[in-house]
Design a protein around this nucleic acid. Structure first.
Lengths: 212, 212
DNA sequence: GTATGTGAAACGATTCACAGCT
DNA sequence: AGCTGTGAATCGTTTCACATAC
């Protein structure tokens, strides 16, 4: 059934399935079944089938899923069948690393703009992409069709810029600054906090014994 | 009650609460209530109280929580009251950026080793920390008491190194490589896949209308 | 009066198990 | 025979609402 609300958890697994399917494709597998996807994705077969069933009925009973076909469907649902334009705000070390990280272009995103407040950084970057001053934010976002913003500024700057991003019509933000950004309901923020991830690991180290 | 299994979801929120508490402390607030924590953390009061109640009874009814005191308790549960030693494997752009990211030292982690396969990179790094060759992995991990490994290598290298890490006694891995690492039950992996995060955002852009 | 701590209710996600299709 | 698609059962998490303590 196409008309059903797709669980948040399913949405988060779809990109993983897509990566596995692309890998299967590169291995020239014409067909894959739910067990195969589950093994590659570190999930289980029932979960994979249920997740995919939210998108539609793409499988062939007794056989499995056509790899090529399923890649098309999942990509379309994820909105990455055409490349989306992204901007990085904050060209420090992390921002710079992300800019030259090849993994985005392959997976549906093109970095089309870089911003920084530091006037010294406002110059041509390694990848031939100029670093624009933060003053030009609205203009550049509109001109280059930026849909997703990757924030790698210090926390205060992230908070301060938020209003301008929202009124520029940006609806998707990937935030690396360790602050909660509160945004209107139609804007989505995904938070990546590396210290949080490490602390979760640390919790398990600290409580290994008591766990069962 | 101290003797209860702490939900996974609670564990993931504790680091966020800790960050908020530290911020409250830096603002010289002696006491904070669950509503205050919830607002800073982007959660809700009932959730905060339930989460904290898994760790013990730290609040004062009618008043709230002593900030200093609660920081101590949460830090202890997270195992970050003493600094933990971490290593970064793969000193490419991302690894390099993480190495110089100040946010770790403040929040309970010290980077004590860097590794790379590239013999050209095996030299002294910006922070005065030498890049060790991957051959010395086991030795350096043991000598410097590395508990957490941050993997920023290409996917194939991550998979290949896993066995050596596990047999070196590493029990916590933060993996940036877009592969599922499968590890023994007593080893914990946290996966950070930036393309996955972007694709989740993209899903919402693509399905904004149908969502409710 | 005010805010915590917590059973109980409501909600959402996962797993089970099998009918239905190839 | 084999594997998908899916209701139903199970499990875990969140939210509610209030007794309890200050």
């Amino acid at each position: 059934m196409t008309q059903a609300p797709i669980p948040q958890t399913t949405i988060q697994r779809l990109p993983v399935y897509l990566r596995c399917l692309l890998q299967a494709q590169s291995m020239h597998m014409p067909v894959i079944n739910s067990i195969g996807i589950a093994e590659m994705a570190g999930s289980n077969a029932a979960q994979v089938r249920k997740d995919l069933s939210y998108l539609g009925e793409f499988g062939i009973r007794g056989i499995g899923y056509d790899v090529e076909d399923l890649i098309g469907h999942v990509s379309r649902w994820l909105g990455v069948s055409v490349s989306r334009h992204a901007a990085i705000i904050g060209v420090g070390r992390l921002g710079g690393a992300l800019r030259s990280y090849g993994g985005f272009e392959d997976r549906g995103f093109r970095i089309v703009a870089l911003f920084d407040t530091d006037p010294e950084k406002v110059r041509s970057d390694v990848g031939g992409l100029p670093v624009d001053p933060i003053e030009d934010l609205e203009e550049v976002i509109a001109q280059r069709g930026v849909e997703v913003v990757i924030l790698t500024t210090p926390p205060e700057a992230a908070q301060a810029l938020l209003g301008r991003l929202v009124s520029s019509g940006v609806k998707a933000i990937l935030n690396f600054a360790p602050v909660r950004l509160d945004v209107p309901a139609d804007v989505m923020v995904r938070q990546v906090d590396l210290a949080v991830e490490l602390q979760v690991l640390s919790f398990h180290l600290a409580n290994r014994d008591e766990e069962r």
